[in-house]
Each structure stands twice: as structure tokens, then as C-alpha cells.
Design a protein around this nucleic acid. Structure first.
Length: 917
DNA sequence: TTAATCACG
DNA sequence: ACGTACGTGATTAAG
């Protein structure tokens, strides 16, 4: 049987894959989509054809012979995207790792090499498949050489196949004649124009009839249409050149030995090197193909289930000052309780009733690389026994994942009270290492750090994702349906952090973030655990009344809007609303979004003065927002002790800020009075008051410090109104004569500076022309030259280092700055300016939180930190401790960082959050 | 699940 | 000529 050769047009397929797939990047920010797509196409072909030989041809970047001839024609050939360019060497590396033969030759395009090798192979009696996205290659088709063009469709990759007969059938000309067609017709992508007046159709007809441009030329006198007849003579020299350009060489002087391209089976490609590279590039799906090659890692061989207290005791005794990794496995159903539903299906109060005294399934414990213990809650091994053993252990480090949840489980019964022995608490706290927080610091732009990612990136171990492992089952389900499998997964929970630890710490050290990790993020997790456990009182009754009051207004507005619209529709649907406003009522200034008209507040704002229906819609939106998100939304989170407990997420934001979910207590209304009223339902418990402190303009102060701009520093040192001071400088008026409009504009400029200013953004915010906005910015930078210099340096440094940096060495990887897309690059520049400022402010308040929290415990106070809202801390303070708490907030918030300007805070006290802010 | 909108710093 | 302010999360509609 004849042998089979697969030839791949490297750049063409890489290009196809690049444009056919969404942008993919790995944790290091390498773009990988083209490589990924290429490999998928290649394996699909290989599996289908099972060839004996495989070779990939690439263009050489130096100008090639044919390319040189094109040069004058190809002046505007589009340069390759940076994201794609980066992937060319990566692709070659991957192919080399897989042992796939690569050919390239200076002076020749990949086409020429493909043509040449195909020609030689055919002469040796082989069958050849050429894989390319480029139809020019159709000229190479014969009855032994198959041209295959992959098309990426929604349903997957489909491939068009052409032997010589198929070319004839599809295009009406033979492969050789195909060249002549192209010579006449020209090629816009290669940018040569062919013979004027001859397009696709005429070219095909003529070539089909006469067979070549030479024959057409000979018969020029009699061919139709007349303009073709005339032009073929007039532009004959061009036509000849075009034919030469369009002809793919089949005799390039390439050294090539078929034996070098030989593969015995597809599995030859699954090498260890390729495996490691796929792992580095995070090609998860591809890794499955390597299963056979991979030395299989099977955790079940390492697991020992411990079911007696004697054995458990012995294990804990063995631990001296080793590192251990642990993970307490919670019973979801029992420990959390559940919401009751009322007759309307509304979620109501929280039910804490539970059948079992035990809230844990057990403890997953690792302290060496070849053993994982699962100590099960049974036979006298209680949940509290496990908690106490962890708390009392003399281990050096306590490695875990999601330390905040683990700490909350450990403190369930309040065994370790920081107030009892503060020093002991701090020593205990400093032992913890959280693998997810470490991963977050190393790359904060991912937002989630599942165990399988940590395993892959830092322990070099492939494990299933949680979803792959559990599917739709919960851990509780699995413990009852397939206990061994459940134990297998929770074994990973301690084993992976244990195995990843050294790499994580080394990486943090290498990136100068070990101090940030140990002194800020890890202690902060304990502070957050305490805050989450405390919760905050919400008055459900008051909330209900507030909601009913909103209902009245909403109904009224709804009725009036329907009347003015002349029909009933869903006001909440931007789609329906857009049609009513901009089609039925024909309002001006319609702006399109992807799906219809934009009905956002900034569009509607411009129309509300002329159209009463618009202001009613805006008001309706306000009221329904307040009702659904806040009045009714918050009510569902009230637990039976009247408190709401948010979750603070420490590993989501790219800048280092916290976020708050379920419910989000960082976006409670304040800007509009009606919304602000909601804060009255957040109140302090009996005998306590709220003390609320917020940093005054922390981001601008951070900017003053980082930029060392004397004028800004000076203004703060003299306690000047900063926006007025900016207005005075930017608009060139004496400080005392600044108008309120000037001050407002200056304030917007100051905000803009922090966001990474653009004239467009500023003009939109202020409703002024872009020209005026540019003028403001220009003046600003003239007055504050060091700020300009500083912001420029942020971009420069980010470009050089590929990350932005805060004062406390927090990093934000920056991939946008290298983008080929203008918009993305601009965004990258704004981010490079904003991240150090927003991030440093985030660092400072985190430090402040730890200091405040620790002072409270050191002084054995009963006041507690409840909430953080980016630049604000809310404390529930015992009335008798009020003065001390105010003192603590002032000292610890102001002392959190030493800047060249003082950190100032504003503090207010009140029985509820409305009065305290 | 995604897009649009709007609440906060 | 491009088409944007930085960082979040919840709700709703609609595919």
C-alpha cells in the first residue's frame, strides 16, 4: 500500500486558528489560542488520516524570493498582530517537542516548500494531503495530492477536500489553469491587481476556453468582452508577471529526507516534552491525550482513613515542627442551616435547627509527600476533637486553602478567643499559609483559584476539576453515595496545598511579596473571618415598611408611564423601553447598543427636561432598584439573630481591593437621599453605637506621595480644600475666587487623574466638549508636572516589567500594553496609571483593618469591626468604649502608612449607619 | 448564560 | 481613525 504524507502550511493554519478562536492566555499571560487551535486541527487530521509522514512548513521572516517580487505590490500587506507573532516561536517549540518535522528556507515561501515536497512525494508514489487555509494551493492538487482547507464552524471544524477533479468541478478549471485565472483576476489579499477589466467570471470563462493566458493572448483579437481583448494586450507584461507571482514553485532547493518526517503512530507525538509544554500553556483538554504517557498520579494509594481515636492521637503526636497541611471538611446541610420559604415562595428566616451535633465529616491532613490521612468524625472522634488538635498542634506552618472558611470552622465553638491571650493568638495566626491567597497575589487577574489550577501551576500535578469530580452532586451527596470517592477529593484539599507550598513561597519571595503575604493578607483573612461572623443587624420590619412605601410610588409611576406611552409594556426591559421611546415616541438622540437602543441613565438624563415620561422612567428605575436589590434583596439574608452576614472576598479584584457578596454590603445607597434612608435599618445592638471612619481622599493623597509633586503635597500640608486648590491652579484664578462650577470641574479632573485620564472620559463626565476637556488636562499637567511625570513613568515601568506595582509591592500583571488593538492598549495605559494608586490605597486600609482589629483585642474591648467599604471602616462600639474606639480608629488608620502627606479620617457616631455616615 | 443597567468606592 | 474613564456585585430580561 502506498505511503501517506501530511503537509501543513504552518503560518496559514496558525493564522486560521488565531482568528477562529477567542483570545486565550495562560497564567503567565502568554497568548495561546493560535497554538491551541493549530494542534487541534493537526490532531483531527492525523487521527483521520493516520499518515506515515508529517511535515510543517513555515515562511522565513526574511524577505523571500517571491515576496521580494511582490514587494512593490504588497506595500500595504497587513503586519501580523503581536498576539499572533508571539505564538509563532511557541508553535515551533511545540512541534519540535512533539518530534514533528519543520521545514523552512530563506528565500522561499512555505507554499513553495509544500509544492516541492508534494511533488517529490508524488513521484515516490505517495499519497499527499496538504493542509492550508489558502486557496492558492489548489493549483497543487492532482489525483494523488489532496488539498484540505479547514473551516472553523460553530459545529466544529469542517474540512473542504480537493483533488484535481474537485477543483475542476468547483471552479470549472484545472489546478494548473487555476494559476492563470488568478493571474488575470488578481488577488486582493496578496495585493496584485491582475489584468484590469477582468474579474473572476471573465477570467474563468477565458481560461476554461483557451487553457492559459498565453493562448488567450494569442487569440486576443477574437476574445470577448472587448475590454478584455484590449487589456490583455495592453497589460500583457503585468499578466505574465502576475502568473509568475501566482505560480507556486515545485522545485525549491530544499534538503529534505522523508525518514526525518516519519511517525509510526500518532502516540509518538505525545512526548514528555510536549506534555510539559501543554501543561505550561494550560491546554487542559489536550493533556487528556497524554494520559497513557503520564506516570499516573493516583491519590487513593496515598490515603489512609483513620477511624479510631488512638490512631488519630498517634498521628497528631508524630507532628513536631513539621509543616502540615489540613482541611476541615464541613457538612453543608447541618452546619449552615437553611432558609424557610413562606407561602409566596419568598425566602424567609434562617433555620439553624440541625439533626446532628457534628458539623464536620472529618479532617484531611498531609505532612509528607507520600501520605494523606483522612481522620473521620466517628467512634469518639468528634468535630471539636479535630478542631482542638489543629489549634494545639506544634507544627511550624499550617497550610490550607481558603483559610477564612477554615478559621471560621475552627472558631465555631469559640475555643480560641483572641481576647484571652492576644500574644498566643498572634503566634497562632502567623502559622497559617493559604495557597489560594498566595496564588492570588502571584496573579490577581484571574479571580478564582480552584484546587486543580493550584495543583497544575504550583505542584505540577493534574487533578480533576471540582465539577469533573462531583458533577451535580454536593459533597454531602457523595459522602453518602460514594464515600471513598468523596474522601479522594478531600484528600487533595490538604495534599495539593502541601505539595504546592514550597513553590508558592519561593514565587512570592522572588516577586518581593512575601511580606505583603505574611504581614497583610494572611492576618487580614482572620480579621475578615471575625467580621463575617459578627454580621450586622438589619431591621426586617423597617425594611418591609420601606419596601411597601416604594410600592406606592412604583405603581403610580408605572400607571403614568403607561398612559404617556399609550400602551402597557415591561418598563424593566431595555429592549421594550427602547422601542417605545425611540420608535413609538420618536425621541431624539437614540444610541444603539448591540441589542437595540441604549436606555441608560446618561442618555435619558439629556432627555428628561423635555420629556416628562423620561424623568418618570428614571425615577421608576431608582425605585425598583431600591426595592429589588436593597429592600427585598437584603431581607432574604437576615438570619434569626436579626443579623446579615456578608462574605468578603479576598481573591477577586485585580487591584487588591476586597469585594463583598451575598449580600454585597459595599454598595448600599448613599448618594441619593431616598436610597440613603435604607441605612437607617442597619443599626447597632443594644448598648452599642456605630462608629464610622473614612479616609479623606486617600487616593489623591497616595498620588501626592507617589508622585512627590510639591504643589499637591503642599496643598495637603496646609489643609487646603484640594479641589478648590486644583481649580485655582488649573483655571488660573485666585483661591478665594474659585466658583462652585470651577471647583466641581476640578474635582472631576482629580477623579479622572486617578482613573488614568482621557479627554473623552472627562468630557463625558462633565458634559463639556472634548476640546475643553483636553485643555483642562493640559493645564492640570502644566501645573502639576511631577504628576504627569509620575503617570508616564507608571506606563513605562508597566511596559518594561509587564506588571504594575503598589507601594507595598502588590503586583498586577499587565498584558494589555502589548496588544495590537489600540483600544486595548489605551485601556492598559489607564490601568497602569490607576492600579498603583487604587492598589496602594487598598493596601493601606487592609493594614489599618489589622491594626484596628488587633488593638481592639489587645485592649480586651467588646467593640467589633463589622464592615469595610474600600476607604471606610464601620465598628459596632460598646457605648462605654466609644472614646477609646474613636482613638483607636484615628491612631491605627492614620498610622497604617507613612506618606509624605498625613492620612486624615472623618469619623462619625450614630445609632444607625445613616446617622454614622 | 449574557447583556444592560445601576448601586457603591 | 480608532471609541474609552478605574474597581466591584445584584437584578432583570431574554436567548
Amino acid at each position: 500500500m502506498s505511503k501517506k504524507l501530511v503537509l501543513i502550511d504552518g503560518h496559514s493554519i496558525l493564522n486560521r486558528a488565531y482568528y477562529g478562536l477567542p483570545d486565550l492566555t495562560n497564567a503567565q499571560g502568554l497568548h495561546t489560542n493560535a497554538v491551541y487551535g493549530f494542534i487541534n486541527i493537526m490532531f483531527k487530521i492525523l487521527e483521520e488520516e493516520k499518515p506515515d509522514y508529517i511535515t510543517v512548513a513555515f515562511d522565513v521572516h526574511a524577505p523571500t524570493f517571491r515576496h521580494k517580487m511582490f514587494e512593490e505590490y504588497k506595500g500595504n500587506r497587513k503586519s501580523m498582530d503581536e498576539e499572533l507573532r508571539q505564538q509563532v516561536p511557541l508553535m515551533k517549540k511545540m512541534l519540535t517537542a512533539m518530534g514533528v518535522k519543520i521545514i523552512e528556507l530563506a528565500g522561499y515561501e512555505a507554499d513553495d516548500l509544500l509544492g516541492t515536497i508534494a511533488n517529490r512525494a508524488e513521484k515516490e508514489g505517495m499519497n499527499v494531503s496538504i493542509i492550508s487555509g489558502d486557496r492558492d494551493l489548489l493549483q497543487l492538487a492532482t489525483d494523488k495530492v489532496l488539498i484540505r482547507i479547514p473551516k472553523t464552524k460553530r459545529t466544529g471544524t469542517e474540512i473542504e477536500n480537493y483533488f484535481a477533479s474537485d477543483v475542476k468541478e468547483a471552479y470549472g478549471v484545472t489546478p494548473k489553469e487555476f494559476i492563470d485565472v488568478k493571474a488575470l483576476q488578481g488577488d486582493s489579499s496578496d495585493n496584485f491587481s491582475g489584468v484590469p477589466g477582468i474579474g473572476e467570471k471573465t477570467a474563468k470563462t477565458l481560461v476554461a476556453e483557451y487553457g492559459s493566458i498565453e493562448k488567450i493572448h494569442e487569440n486576443a483579437a477574437i476574445i470577448k468582452p472587448p475590454r478584455a481583448s484590449k487589456n490583455i494586450v495592453e497589460y500583457w507584461e503585468d499578466a505574465v508577471l502576475c502568473k509568475k507571482l501566482a505560480t507556486i514553485l515545485t522545485d525549491a532547493p530544499i534538503e529534505y529526507n522523508f525518514e526525518d518526517a516519519k511517525i509510526d503512530s500518532i502516540s509518538d507525538l505525545y512526548t514528555q516534552d510536549a506534555y510539559l509544554l501543554c501543561k505550561e500553556l494550560e491546554f487542559k483538554n489536550l493533556l487528556n491525550r497524554f494520559d497513557a504517557k503520564e506516570e499516573s498520579f493516583n491519590i487513593s494509594e496515598l490515603i489512609e482513613v483513620v477511624e479510631t481515636i488512638e490512631k488519630a492521637d498517634k498521628i497528631f503526636e508524630e507532628i513536631k515542627d513539621k509543616n502540615i497541611a489540613f482541611y476541615l471538611v464541613k457538612r453543608e446541610n447541618n452546619s449552615v442551616g437553611q432558609f424557610n420559604q413562606d407561602s409566596n415562595g419568598q425566602l424567609g428566616l434562617f433555620d439553624f435547627s440541625t439533626d446532628s451535633k457534628e458539623d464536620l465529616f472529618g479532617l484531611s491532613l498531609t505532612y509528607s509527600k507520600d501520605k494523606v490521612y483522612f481522620i473521620e468524625v466517628c467512634n469518639g472522634i468528634t468535630s471539636d476533637y479535630l478542631r482542638n488538635k489543629i489549634k494545639e498542634t506544634t507544627a511550624n506552618k499550617l497550610i490550607t486553602r481558603d483559610v477564612k472558611s477554615q478559621v471560621k470552622l475552627l472558631e465555631q465553638t469559640g475555643v480560641l478567643n483572641p481576647a484571652e491571650d492576644f500574644e498566643k493568638y498572634v503566634a497562632y495566626r502567623s502559622k497559617f499559609v493559604d495557597a489560594s491567597i498566595a496564588s492570588y497575589l502571584i496573579n490577581p487577574t484571574i479571580g478564582e483559584y480552584p484546587l486543580d489550577d493550584i495543583a497544575k501551576s504550583f505542584a505540577g500535578i493534574m487533578i480533576p476539576t471540582q465539577k469533573e469530580f462531583f458533577g451535580k452532586e454536593t459533597i454531602d451527596d457523595m459522602f453518602s453515595s460514594n464515600k471513598n470517592k468523596a474522601i479522594e477529593y478531600v484528600a487533595y484539599e490538604s495534599y495539593i496545598p502541601f505539595m504546592a507550598n514550597d513553590n508558592l513561597i519561593a514565587r512570592l519571595q522572588n516577586d518581593n511579596m512575601l511580606e505583603l503575604f505574611e504581614k497583610v493578607e494572611m492576618p487580614l483573612a482572620f480579621v475578615l473571618a471575625s467580621m463575617e461572623k459578627e454580621g450586622i443587624i438589619l431591621d426586617a420590619q423597617a425594611l418591609k415598611e420601606y419596601s411597601s412605601n416604594l410600592d406606592e410610588g412604583i405603581l403610580k409611576l408605572q400607571k403614568s408611564i403607561y398612559e404617556k406611552a399609550g400602551e402597557e409594556f415591561n418598563i424593566n426591559s431595555p429592549k421594550q423601553l427602547g422601542v417605545i421611546l425611540f420608535e413609538k415616541l420618536a425621541l431624539p438622540n437614540a444610541k444603539k447598543t448591540k441589542t437595540g437602543y441604549s436606555t441608560s441613565a446618561d442618555i435619558l438624563d439629556g432627555l428628561k427636561a423635555q420629556y416628562p415620561i423620561v424623568s418618570e422612567i428614571l425615577e421608576y428605575r431608582q425605585l425598583t432598584k431600591l426595592k429589588s436589590t436593597y429592600a427585598d434583596g437584603l431581607r432574604n439574608y437576615i438570619e434569626e439573630d436579626n443579623r446579615v452576614r456578608t462574605t468578603f472576598n479576598q481573591t477577586v479584584t485585580a487591584t487588591g481591593r476586597l469585594s463583598s457578596t451575598e449580600p454585597n454590603l459595599q454598595n448600599i445607597p448613599i448618594r441619593i437621599e431616598l436610597g440613603k434612608q435604607i441605612r437607617k435599618v442597619f443599626h447597632a445592638k443594644e448598648g452599642y453605637v456605630f462608629v464610622d471612619s473614612d479616609y479623606s481622599q486617600i487616593e489623591l493623597r497616595v498620588l501626592a506621595h507617589l508622585s512627590e509633586d510639591e504643589k499637591l503635597i503642599d496643598a495637603y500640608k496646609h489643609g487646603k480644600d484640594i479641589h478648590r486648590s486644583t481649580a485655582s491652579l488649573v483655571f488660573g484664578v485666585p483661591f478665594d475666587e474659585v466658583t462652585s462650577l470651577q471647583r466641581r470641574n476640578a474635582k472631576a479632573v482629580n477623579f479622572g487623574i486617578v482613573y488614568g485620564i482621557s479627554s473623552f472620559g472627562l468630557s463625558k463626565d462633565l458634559g463639556i466638549s472634548r476640546k475643553d476637556a483636553s485643555e483642562y488636562i493640559k493645564n492640570y499637567f502644566e501645573q502639576y508636572p511631577k504628576i504627569k511625570k509620575y503617570l508616564d513613568s507608571c506606563i513605562e515601568r508597566a511596559k518594561e516589567k509587564k506588571y504594575a506595582l503598589t507601594m507595598f509591592n502588590r503586583r498586577r500583571p499587565m498584558v494589555e500594553l502589548e496588544s495590537s488593538n489600540f483600544m486595548t492598549r489605551q485601556f492598559g495605559e489607564r490601568v497602569a496609571m490607576n492600579s498603583p494608586i487604587q492598589g496602594t490605597a487598598a493596601d493601606i486600609i487592609k493594614i489599618a483593618m489589622i491594626r484596628v482589629h488587633d488593638r481592639i483585642f489587645k485592649e480586651k474591648l467588646e467593640s467589633r469591626l463589622l464592615l469595610q467599604v474600600h476607604d471606610e471602616l464601620l465598628i459596632e462600639a460598646k457605648e462605654s468604649e466609644l472614646e477609646e474606639v474613636k482613638k483607636i480608629l484615628k491612631e491605627e488608620m492614620q498610622g497604617a502608612a507613612q506618606l509624605s502627606v498625613d492620612l486624615e479620617i472623618d469619623t462619625q457616631v450614630g445609632k444607625n449607619w445613616y446617622d454614622a455616615h
